[in-house]
């Protein structure tokens, strides 16, 4: 995959917050600071999460994949947040149910319909319990980046991401 898409600076470990809004704010503020997304992304991603929750129970470690419209994004990136304590997110496609999320994959996408390979591989990560477990226990951004790159590069068919 394009190395710039998952810089170590996009990986946050021990993210703390009382609510999903706290978590989203921390992660989005980091992306704003790094120039990856516009200031408007913060409110937009929170609003989108409230309207269309992205929490996904996986059978073990629940994840969330918050994202919003492309107009709030400067360049595409994936930010990973390992939460210090699980925080409840609404379950995608459910009205009121929530799930205790431990890993957040915040997506900054700058084009419509063009991220298929990346998204497909991200779903493979999400479906891999041992991978999720490993990610949630990692203590350095460098090792998370390495783990993710291994999977995103080699596990799927179709060659490396461009």
């Amino acid at each position: 995959m394009n190395m710039d898409m998952m810089d170590e600076a996009f990986i946050l470990i021990g993210v703390e917050g009382e609510s999903k809004e706290d978590i989203l704010t921390r992660m989005a503020e980091n992306l704003v600071k790094l120039g990856v997304v516009k200031e408007s992304y913060i409110a937009a991603v929170i609003e989108r999460e409230q309207a269309y929750p992205t929490g996904l129970p996986t059978g073990g470690c629940s994840v969330a994949i918050p994202h919003t419209d492309i107009e709030h994004v400067n360049r595409k990136a994936i930010s990973i947040g390992v939460l210090k304590q699980p925080v409840r997110f609404g379950i995608m496609g459910e009205e009121e149910e929530t799930t205790p999320v431990e890993l957040v994959f915040m997506l900054a996408m700058d084009q419509k319909h063009s991220q298929l390979k990346l998204l497909t591989r991200l779903m493979q990560v999400i479906q891999d319990q041992s991978m999720l477990r490993a990610l949630s226990k990692e203590t350095s951004p460098a090792s998370i980046k390495e783990l993710m790159n291994t999977v995103l590069q080699f596990e799927a068919q179709g060659g490396p991401l461009t």
């Binding site: 269309y52 994202h67 298929l116 998204l119």
Partner: peptide
């Protein structure tokens, strides 16, 4: 369909 029409609906 999905919320944004760009991410999960692509998958």
């Amino acid at each position: 369909a999905c919320g944004a029409g760009i991410a999960t609906s692509t998958v």
